[in-house]
């Protein structure tokens, strides 16, 4: 078994309104930063032991499917690194 960290990033699907991101973007503009658009995302770092990076990725994928993301509004991706 090898120690991995699976990083799951969950973001709103393209086209789904993100009021918190819009508010954050406006706040940055009030601080005189120039930007076109701001998107927010949730990131989960999951430490786990698995036989392979592939297996670690599959388990993290299932975690995203069943809880971390809501498929109605979210897309997600999974990255796996050895710890």
């Amino acid at each position: 078994m090898t120690a991995y960290t699976a990083t799951v990033t969950v973001r709103l699907k393209h086209g789904v309104l993100d009021p918190e991101a819009e508010t954050t973007a406006r706040a940055l503009e009030r601080l005189d930063f120039e930007l076109e658009e701001l998107r927010s995302a949730d990131q989960f770092e999951i430490d786990l032991e698995a036989a392979s990076a592939e297996e670690a990725g599959e388990r993290a994928d299932e975690m995203a499917e069943r809880l971390l993301a809501n498929p109605t509004i979210h897309d997600y991706d999974v990255e796996v690194d050895e710890r």
């Binding site: 309104l17 993100d18 009021p19 508010t23 809501n70 109605t72 509004i73």
Partner: peptide
Amino acid sequence: GCESSLTEGAFTTNESA
């Protein structure tokens, strides 16, 4: 109800945040 698939769709952050 929506999160558990009893009904479809999602109730998410108000437009006003």
